[in-house]
C-alpha cells in the first residue's frame, strides 16, 4: 500500500510530456551549436547571395544576353538593335508591323527575367544543390551528431519511449532546417531584383514542403548510418539527380520531382512548364503536396519504428 502510494507520488511529480518538451527544447538549443556542415551551409548561402546579387547588378536575369541559332549567332539584344536599324527603310505598313514586333520582342525579353531566374537559379542551383545540402546540414546532425559523439546514451536511458525521443529531435531540428531553407531562399530572392519577389511568392510552399521531406529523409539517415552526411550527399547529388531526370515513373521516387511539379503549377501563368511535358509527365500541384506530406509522415513513422528496435553499440 505504502509502495503504491509512493509510486503515485512519483508519477505526480514527474511527467513524460514535460520530459518530452524539455527534450525538444534541449535539442533545439544544441542544434544552435553550429557544426561543420552548418558552417558550410552558411558559407554557401553567402556565396550564392553574392552570385545572385552580381547577376542582378549586371542585369543578367533576362534572355537579352542569350545567343540564338545554336548559341553562335547574335544575342537577342543585338539582333533587336540591328533589326531596328533597317526599319526606316521599310514601307509605312511594314514600319508599323515591325514596330509592333519589336515592341513585343522587347516586352518578352523584359518579362523573361522570371523564367531565366527560375530555370537558371531556382531549379538549377537552389533546388538541385542548395536545398538538399542545407537540409542535410541540420537533419543529419540532429541525431547523427549525438550518435557519433556517443552522447545519445544519455537520452536513451531516460524514461522516455524511443519513438518519442526520435520525434522530439525531429521537431527540434525542423525550425533550423526550415529557417535556413525558406529564409535562405527569401534572402536570395530579395537580391534577385524584379523576378525575386515573384519567385518567392510562387515557390515558397514548394521550398517548405520539400525541406520538410528532405529533412525527414536525412534525419532518418542520421539515425541509422554511420556517415550520414556522406550518405545524404550521395543521395542528393546522384540518386535525386539521376532519378529526378529519368523518363518514366522512376523519377516519382525523387523528392525534387514533386517540388518541381508544385512549382510548375504555381507558375503556370508565367509560362513555366517542363521542357517536354509529355516526357516529364508532371503531377498536379495538389497531388505533389500530398505526396510530399505523406512521404514526410511515412519517413518519420519508419524512423520511429526502426529507432525503437535499433541497438546502438558503444563503438557507435
Amino acid at each position: 500500500m505504502t509502495e503504491s502510494a509512493g509510486a503515485m507520488d512519483k508519477r505526480r511529480e514527474r511527467s513524460s510530456l514535460r520530459a518530452w518538451l524539455f527534450l525538444v527544447w534541449l535539442s533545439w538549443q544544441r542544434q544552435a551549436r553550429a557544426r561543420q556542415m552548418v558552417w558550410i551551409a552558411l558559407a554557401l548561402l553567402a556565396f550564392a547571395t553574392v552570385v545572385v546579387a552580381l547577376n542582378t547588378a549586371g542585369g543578367r536575369w533576362t534572355m537579352a544576353y542569350w545567343k540564338f541559332f545554336g548559341r553562335q549567332g547574335p544575342t537577342h539584344q543585338e539582333w533587336l538593335a540591328q533589326s531596328q536599324t533597317v526599319t526606316p527603310l521599310l514601307p509605312p505598313a511594314g514600319k508599323a508591323l515591325a514596330s509592333a514586333y519589336y515592341a513585343a520582342h522587347s516586352a518578352i525579353l523584359k518579362e523573361s527575367d522570371f523564367l531565366v531566374f527560375t530555370r537558371g537559379f531556382v531549379f538549377l542551383l537552389f533546388f538541385s544543390f542548395l536545398l538538399p545540402l542545407w537540409s542535410l546540414s541540420f537533419a543529419t546532425e540532429a541525431m547523427g551528431g549525438e550518435r557519433e559523439s556517443q552522447s545519445l546514451i544519455w537520452l536513451l536511458t531516460r524514461p522516455l519511449s524511443r519513438p518519442a525521443i526520435y520525434l522530439a529531435k525531429f521537431v527540434a531540428m525542423l525550425p533550423w532546417c526550415l529557417a535556413l531553407n525558406v529564409g535562405g531562399f527569401a534572402l536570395l530572392c530579395s537580391v534577385a531584383g524584379r523576378p525575386g519577389p515573384i519567385a518567392f511568392r510562387l515557390f515558397w510552399p514548394a521550398v517548405l514542403w520539400a525541406s520538410l521531406t528532405f529533412g525527414a529523409l536525412f534525419y532518418l539517415f542520421g539515425a541509422f548510418f554511420r556517415r550520414p552526411a556522406i550518405v545524404a550527399i550521395v543521395y542528393s547529388f546522384f540518386l535525386e539527380v539521376i532519378m529526378g531526370n529519368m523518363p518514366g515513373d522512376l523519377k516519382r521516387f525523387s523528392v525534387g520531382f514533386y517540388a518541381r511539379c508544385m512549382m510548375f503549377e504555381a507558375a503556370e501563368q508565367h509560362g513555366l512548364q517542363p521542357e517536354n511535358p509529355v516526357i516529364y509527365d508532371p503531377v498536379s500541384g495538389g497531388t505533389a503536396l500530398w505526396v510530399l506530406l505523406l512521404s514526410t509522415v511515412l519517413l518519420l513513422a519508419v524512423g520511429m519504428f526502426l529507432f525503437r528496435r535499433i541497438e546502438f553499440e558503444v563503438s557507435d
Partner: peptide, 13 residues
Amino acid sequence: QTMARLCGYRRGE
C-alpha cells in the same frame, strides 16, 4: 540538471 529535466521533473524539483 538536464538529465533530471529529461526525467520529467519540474525545474525546481
